[in-house]
C-alpha cells in the first residue's frame, strides 16, 4: 500500500471468520470502526488494537492492523507499555464491562488517571457474554443469570461515572447500531489523551434488548445526543435538560415552540466537569440517556510527560557503559597476586 492509495473499510478487515453470535451488537461496532478508520488518516501498520478477554475482546483478530489479545482485565497495562515504548503508535483498547470494571477495574482507573493517549472502547452489554451469561458489575439489581438465579442483589457501577471519577479527560457514549457511532469514534480519536467511550452493546443471547428502552427506534426520544455549544434537547426538541439551581441538580423541562432558552435548557459545554458528573448519573426513566461526547478537556498525556522527563534527565549525558560499570568509589589494584 503506498501513501497515495485511499484506504477503505475493507483494508482494515482481516480474512478471519468473525465468530460472534448472529445478531450480536459486536458486529455493528466492528463495522463502524472499520468504516471510521479510513477517515482518520491512519496507516494500518501504525495502529494497534489491544484487548483483554471476553466476546468483545476477540475484536483485534478482525482488524487488519497490529493486534494483541491479552489476558482478562489487563489490556490497559499492555497498552501502557506499547505506548511508552513507541508513542507514535495509535493505540486502541477494546474491553467489556466485566473485563474493564470487574477484574480490570484497577487498570482502567490508572490508565485514565495517567491519561495515556489511547482510545478505550468499553462494550457494555451488562453481562458476561463469553462465560455464558453471568451477571456483571454493570448488571442492574435483580438480573437473573446462571450465577444469580434469584436475581442479583448488588448495585451496578456506572462506567462513565467511574471514568470521570478516575480523572478521565474524555468521556463519551455511543450505541452499537446507531449511525452516530463513527462520529463518537472520530471525536475519541481526535482527543489527545485517554478517550473513554462506553458503547451500549446488545448481547442477543444472554441479555437481549436490555437497552431497548432507549435504543429501539420507537424509543429514540429517550436519547439525549450532546453537541458542544448546542442546547441539551431531546424527544424531537420538545424537551430539554435544565439546571435546578436550588438543589444543584439537573431536571427535565418542556420546551414550547422551540424556545429552549426560555425553558432554561443548558448549552453543552464539554469542559464543564460538574455538569458531566450530573449527566452520567441521570437515572434512566425520569431522564433520557446522555450520548455523544459528555466531557472533554485535554491535558498533557502520560507518554509525553515520560518522554519529556527521559530526555531532560539524559540531556548532556553521553551513555558510556564502561563508565557506568566503573562508577562509584573504586580503587586500583596494581600488585601481581601473591600466593598465600
Amino acid at each position: 500500500m503506498n501513501e497515495m492509495t485511499k484506504l477503505t473499510a475493507k483494508d482494515f478487515a482481516t480474512d478471519q471468520e468473525v465468530r460472534w453470535c448472529p445478531g450480536c451488537g459486536d458486529y455493528a461496532v466492528l463495522k463502524a470502526v472499520q468504516r471510521t478508520m479510513p477517515e482518520l488518516g491512519v496507516r494500518p501498520e501504525n495502529v494497534v488494537f489491544v484487548s483483554g478477554i471476553g466476546c468483545s475482546s476477540r475484536f483485534p483478530y478482525y482488524m487488519e492492523t497490529y493486534g494483541f489479545h491479552t489476558i482478562h482485565g489487563r489490556a490497559p497495562t499492555f497498552a501502557t507499555g506499547i505506548k511508552l515504548a513507541n508513542p507514535e503508535l495509535d493505540v486502541w483498547i477494546i474491553t467489556g464491562d466485566g473485563d474493564a470494571l470487574s477484574i480490570g477495574g484497577n487498570h482502567t482507573m490508572h490508565v485514565l488517571r495517567r491519561n495515556l493517549d489511547c482510545q478505550i472502547l468499553l462494550f457494555n452489554n451488562e453481562i458476561y457474554g463469553l462465560t455464558k451469561g453471568q451477571y456483571s458489575p454493570t448488571s442492574r439489581v435483580g438480573t437473573r443469570s446462571p450465577s444469580t438465579p434469584f436475581g442479583s442483589v448488588d448495585r451496578p457501577a456506572s462506567p462513565c461515572a467511574f471514568a470521570l471519577g478516575s480523572g478521565a479527560r474524555f468521556v463519551a457514549r455511543g450505541i452499537d447500531v446507531h449511525k452516530n457511532l463513527p462520529e463518537v469514534l472520530k471525536a475519541a480519536h481526535a482527543h489527545k489523551g485517554a478517550s473513554f467511550v462506553e458503547i451500549y452493546q446488545n448481547c442477543v443471547v444472554y441479555n437481549d434488548d436490555i437497552f431497548a428502552p432507549f435504543t429501539a427506534k420507537e424509543n429514540a426520544g429517550n436519547q439525549l445526543w450532546l453537541k458542544a455549544g448546542e442546547p441539551m434537547l431531546f424527544a424531537n426538541r420538545s424537551k430539554g435538560i435544565a439546571l435546578d439551581r436550588e438543589s444543584l441538580s439537573l431536571k427535565v423541562v418542556d420546551v414550547d415552540g422551540g424556545d429552549w432558552a426560555a425553558a432554561g435548557v443548558i448549552v453543552h459545554d464539554p469542559r464543564n466537569r460538574s455538569i458531566a458528573h450530573m449527566l452520567v448519573e441521570m437515572p434512566f426513566g425520569a431522564f433520557p440517556t446522555a450520548l455523544g461526547v459528555l466531557y472533554e478537556d485535554p491535558a498533557p498525556t502520560f507518554e509525553s510527560a515520560v518522554a519529556e522527563q527521559n530526555s531532560k534527565a539524559s540531556a548532556g549525558k553521553a551513555p558510556n557503559l564502561q563508565a557506568l560499570v566503573g562508577k562509584g568509589q573504586s580503587w586500583e589494584v596494581t600488585k601481581e597476586p601473591h600466593v598465600i
Partner: peptide, 15 residues
C-alpha cells in the same frame, strides 16, 4: 500485574 503487562507490551512494541 500491570508491571509485567506493561513490560510485555513494550517488548511487543520492540523494546
Amino acid at each position: 500485574i500491570a508491571a509485567i503487562g506493561s513490560a510485555i507490551g513494550a517488548s511487543f512494541a520492540g523494546s
